[in-house]
Design a protein around this nucleic acid. Structure first.
Length: 828
DNA sequence: GAAATCTTGCTTTTT
DNA sequence: GCAAGATTTC
């Protein structure tokens, strides 16, 4: 289980959101007394200690408490430190109490980190920061309070993408639109994009909705309608509804404007239009808003983030103070210089110059490989060498190293390789627990039990495990529900009463309904118990109905008696045991919650999957996006090839804007490295199972050459001519030539020629060498060779011009000698 | 109704 | 090259 998940880790830090009364410091806030938290801040040894720790720029940003502030914080410049110190400063100057500060982040992880660090600064736990969280988590709180203003009940469910797609699919079908031509997935993306722009169906510009036979807006409208019927929202709605409420109900908005005395925003460059409006509305009155961000690290444009928001800040908030944090505490000068040389290619920047007083350190390393497998092999070897300390550097552990890829499919090559050499690794951001089939099914059971009107949950599990309720039976249920205007569960009830369903299916359905009813009753007792316990600390009365058992037992019972567990026990596919294991973990995770409802609420919002609880050091593999905000002493950046990185799709879809975002991604990647950064590319890569030759990324050309050392891959272009030409590089030549013997290699030149972009000169030695070598065809047993189709192999027999070869992957084959080449000088 | 086989489209990136 | 979905087959 390479990507084994630890649910426990996901929930470890979770402040239970089960009851939202605890955050209602809001209403209770009339007491003029200072909270224990700010008291602690005041009496903490000397109130200035946290300020002494800051550099001048950080201190300036922390002390500028009133009015709009833009903190431009470059990579590794101590932005979280500044942000958390600012919070503490707000407390200790008495400007705001913890529950009057709104601080928003994008990820749960960032929110946790901030909470932890504020606590550390204060030397104790923070009890009263209910408004520190992600945009989404905070919006859920707000929306629960004002749900009726959005036509919802306050116990609305938050749909996951899966439910969303299924719902949209139904709509598309109902509208007689060809689902193949216009997939639900695409509609989901479209609607999501609209929501990110804060467009309600009425606000979608007519020119926008050409897709779906010009019926995009119509479908959007129907979808919203359906969501309201289901008392459900999707992710985009969380923001959109709140913004709409604020816009339509100035009294509500005003209440919050007054309440949130200070607003802090992390990663401001990632805000989309809806979030931007949300912030502007809330900050509209006092304008005490401090946005922290780095325009150079804006990498979420594809999901609606607007770099423009940060670029425009000073216009949006006249008189804003801008503070630049430019001292970098993370990387060596070479790394910073190289990163800065790449990012300087972007036009639209606010501009920052990072500097550091760290010692010079190693140059970045650049290396080209024959193909992706070779790249993975080399990096694996390199990691092992670095762990042993054989690179002339002090030994690193796996935890110190990370491989950052552009697209997740690149991970496979590394996983394969690391598995074969037994190198421990961890994949960050892989398939998440809540996306797993069995977890979703189980959750659907829980959902149906807590809210029997949840039709989507019903659909998902009526026939899971098989209850003999196929398409036609389900259609009957649908019809019964629609005819009576009820939920599917009640529709099924009516159907049974009317004898609309008979036989085995009917019996099973009836049993299913009875079970849900019974469990619902228990779940209801749990939630009322929780509410009562919250409201008055009185121990439950004798005569108050009491649940026969706790929510954990309930969950177990649901999964067992419904036959769901059994279904997997009887399943003989190899993944079944893992699924059962996951279900166990799911139940275990319930321990941290009071009842199922609280659990569901939490899971809906938990979108990250942190699992760093392993004792064994492991190399991290993740995407560049997932790496933002992280740092590692050693970083590998493979796959720097045009089309892959920068991604073709990104450039096709968004042109120059897309390219600039890719470049920022490159910047993010390089700046993750503290000491050693290795960029690599491969000449060949399998794309959709098809071999394709690749050109090195244009970003490689943008690296400042004085900060880069070009490595010759051992065994590739090495020995013979490669080494001969490699050492003697003349200065003053075109950059590419000075950069490497890689660039002098036959393969490279071939690639250049193909691209119509020839290097100015070619070292004599390398010309024609390839042909000479292969023409000689003097093969011996034991020799390593390469075959275009079968890959690498070792010669185990020679018969005239026929060779018997044991290929690494393809097995033993007999091939004609002229079809194989020496792996050291394979022509492209 | 379920299993076996064939086809398709897919690779960004995520709250 | 693969996984999901569709289609065919039992």
């Amino acid at each position: 289980m390479g990507t084994s998940l630890s649910l426990a880790a996901c929930f470890r830090y979770s402040a239970p959101m089960s009851s939202f009364s605890e955050d209602d410091a809001f209403e209770a806030a009339s007491q003029p007394v200072r909270t224990p938290l700010s008291q602690r801040a005041m009496q903490g040894a000397r109130p200035t200690t946290y300020l002494d720790d800051l550099n001048p720029a950080q201190r300036e940003a922390v002390e500028a408490l009133d009015g709009p502030v833009l903190m431009l914080a470059g990579a590794g410049t101590g932005k979280t430190k500044a942000l958390t110190s600012r919070i503490v400063h707000l407390f200790s100057t008495g400007r705001a109490r913890p529950n009057e500060i709104l601080s928003v982040t994008f990820t749960n992880k960032a929110a946790r980190e901030m909470k932890t660090r504020v606590e550390r600064l204060l030397g104790g736990a923070v009890e009263g920061m209910p408004w520190l969280g992600t945009f989404h988590a905070i919006c859920v709180k707000l929306l629960r309070r004002h749900a009726e203003l959005a036509g919802l009940k306050s116990n609305f469910t938050i749909l996951d993408t899966d439910d969303q797609i299924r719902l949209l699919k139904q709509l598309i079908l109902a509208n007689n639109i060809d689902e193949k031509r216009w997939p639900a997935r695409q509609l989901a993306n479209l609607i999501d994009a609209w929501k990110n722009r804060a467009w309600t169906p009425a606000k979608v510009p007519s020119g926008e909705a050409t897709a779906f036979n010009n019926r995009g807006t119509e479908l959007y409208e129907q979808y919203q309608h359906r969501l309201r019927e289901l008392n459900a929202v999707d992710f985009g709605d969380l923001l959109l509804h709140v913004v709409t409420i604020f816009q339509a109900h100035p009294d509500v908005l005003e209440q919050y404007q007054r309440w949130f005395k200070y607003i802090l925003v992390d990663e401001y460059q990632d805000t989309n239009v809806a979030q931007y409006l949300w912030l502007r509305l809330l900050a509209g009155a006092h304008k005490n808003i401090c946005c922290v961000g780095d325009d150079d690290q804006s990498i979420y444009g594809w999901r609606g983030a607007e770099v423009g928001n940060i670029l425009r800040f000073e216009k949006d908030f006249p008189g804003a103070k801008t503070v630049r944090l430019e001292q970098n505490y993370r990387s060596t000068p070479h790394i910073l210089a190289a990163a800065s040389s790449v990012i300087s290619g972007n036009e639209n920047r606010l501009g920052k110059t990072l500097w550091t007083d760290k010692p010079e350190g190693e140059k970045l390393r650049l290396i080209g490989h024959w193909d992706g497998d070779e790249e993975a092999r080399w990096i694996g070897d390199e990691i092992e060498a670095l762990e042993k300390g054989t690179r002339g550097l002090s030994p690193y552990t796996g935890d110190d190293m990370a491989i950052l890829v552009r697209a997740s499919h690149q991970m496979r090559a590394f996983e394969d390789r690391f598995l074969t050499i037994g190198l421990p690794y961890r994949v960050i951001g892989g398939p998440r627990f809540y996306e797993r089939l069995e977890i979703r099914d189980a959750m659907a059971y829980f959902r149906l039990v807590t809210s029997p009107a949840d039709d989507l949950a019903f659909e998902r599990i009526v026939n899971q495990p098989k209850r003999g309720l196929g398409d036609k039976a389900q259609q009957k249920i649908q019809m019964a529900a629609r005819a009576n205007g009820t939920s599917l569960l009640d529709g099924a009830r009516i159907l049974l009463q009317d004898q609309g369903l008979t036989g085995k299916g009917a019996a099973q359905l009836s049993r299913f309904i009875d079970q849900i009813d019974r469990w619902h009753e228990v779940a209801r007792l749990h939630t009322t118990a929780a509410t009562l316990a919250d409201e008055d600390d009185v121990i439950l009365d004798e005569d108050r109905p009491q649940a026969p058992f706790g929510h954990i037992e309930l969950a177990e019972q649901i999964l067992d008696e419904s036959g769901y567990t059994e279904m997997w026990q009887n399943d003989k596919t190899p993944e079944a045991p893992g699924r059962l294991e996951n279900l166990k973990e799911l139940v275990k995770a319930l321990e941290n919650f009071d009842n199922l409802q609280g659990f569901l609420e939490h899971v809906a919002l938990i979108m990250d999957n942190e699992r760093n609880d392993d004792a064994e050091p492991k190399v991290s593999i993740m995407t560049l996006h997932a790496a933002k905000g992280l740092e590692f002493p050693v970083v590998f950046l493979p796959g720097w090839e045009d089309g892959l990185f920068p991604s073709q799709r990104s450039m096709d879809e968004s042109g120059l804007k897309g390219l600039e975002e890719e470049r920022r991604l490159a910047y993010v990647g390089i700046t993750r490295a503290e000491e050693l950064c290795t960029i690599s590319f491969a000449g060949n890569r399998r794309v959709f199972g098809q071999w394709q030759s690749q050109l090195p990324s244009r970003f490689i050309d943008e690296l400042s050459e004085e900060d880069v050392e070009v490595l010759t891959p051992p065994g590739l272009y090495g020995g013979g001519f490669g080494a001969a030409s490699g050492g003697s590089v003349q200065s003053g030549m075109e950059k590419r030539m000075t950069e490497a013997n890689v660039y002098n290699s036959p393969g490279w030149q071939r690639m250049q020629a193909r691209a119509g972009n020839r290097p100015v000169s070619q070292p004599r030695e390398s010309r024609g060498s390839v042909i000479d070598m292969t023409a000689a065809s003097s093969h011996t047993v034991g020799e390593r060779v390469f075959h275009q189709k079968f890959g690498y192999g070792e010669i185990i027999g020679v018969e005239g011009d026929k060779l018997e070869i044991a290929f690494d992957k393809a097995g033993v084959k007999k091939v004609v000698a002229k079809f194989v080449t020496n792996p050291d000088d394979v022509p492209f």
